[in-house]
Amino acid sequence: MTFKAIINGKTLKGETTTEAVDAATAEKVFKQYFNDNGLDGEWTYDDATKTFTVTE
């Protein structure tokens, strides 16, 4: 399945996608990506659209 992340950061904005077997796996991938890029913020997840949003 394809999962999307919308990034609303102070220094980084945009979208990225990942292929994962479930939402928990996708969340781990996205959180690692955000940690690697120095992002920290509020997380939400919309199961209907398979979209994570992080707002810094």
Rank of each mutant, 00 (worst) to 15 (best):
A48Y: 08
F30C: 01
Q32K: 13
V54S: 01
Y33D: 00
K28W: 08
A24N: 07
T16K: 11
M1V: 13
F30A: 00
K10E: 09
N35H: 14
T53L: 07
E42L: 12
T11V: 11
A48P: 06
A20V: 03
E15G: 04
T51N: 01
E27W: 13
G38I: 07
T55N: 08
A23W: 10
T16E: 04
W43N: 00
D47I: 07
T25V: 06
W43P: 01
Y33T: 04
I6D: 03
N8M: 14
E15M: 13
N8Q: 12
A48C: 08
T51E: 03
D36V: 09
L39A: 05
G41M: 13
G14E: 08
T55V: 10
N35K: 15
T17Q: 09
K50M: 08
T17F: 14
T17G: 02
K28A: 11
G9W: 12
E27C: 14
G41V: 13
T51M: 03
T17R: 07
N8T: 08
F52L: 01
T16G: 04
K31V: 07
T55W: 10
E42S: 10
G9C: 14
Y33K: 04
G41H: 09
D47E: 12
F30S: 00
F34R: 01
K28M: 11
T16Q: 11
F3D: 06
L39T: 05
I6Y: 06
D40G: 09
T2P: 04
W43K: 00
G38W: 10
T55E: 07
A5R: 00
V54H: 03
T51L: 03
K13D: 06
W43A: 02
K31F: 04
E56L: 15
L39K: 04
L39W: 15
Y45G: 00
I7M: 08
T44Y: 09
F34L: 13
A48W: 05
T18S: 03
K31H: 05
E42I: 14
K28T: 07
E56K: 04
K50Y: 07
F34T: 10
D46K: 02
V54T: 02
I7Q: 01
K28N: 06
T55P: 03
T51P: 01
A5V: 14
Q32S: 09
D46V: 03
E19K: 13
N37H: 15
M1D: 13
D40T: 13
N8H: 11
I7K: 00
E56I: 15
E27N: 03
K13C: 15
A26H: 00
E15P: 05
Y45N: 01
K10S: 11
W43R: 00
D22V: 01
T16C: 15
Q32L: 07
N8V: 15
G14Y: 15
K10L: 14
D22N: 07
F30P: 00
T25D: 06
N35M: 14
K31T: 04
K10A: 11
K10F: 09
D46G: 00
T51V: 06
F3I: 03
N37I: 15
K4C: 12
Y33E: 03
K50S: 03
G14Q: 09
G38L: 08
L12N: 08
I6V: 11
A26W: 02
T2G: 07
A48N: 10
W43E: 00
V54K: 02
M1Q: 12
K4M: 06
F34I: 09
A23F: 10
K28R: 13
E27G: 06
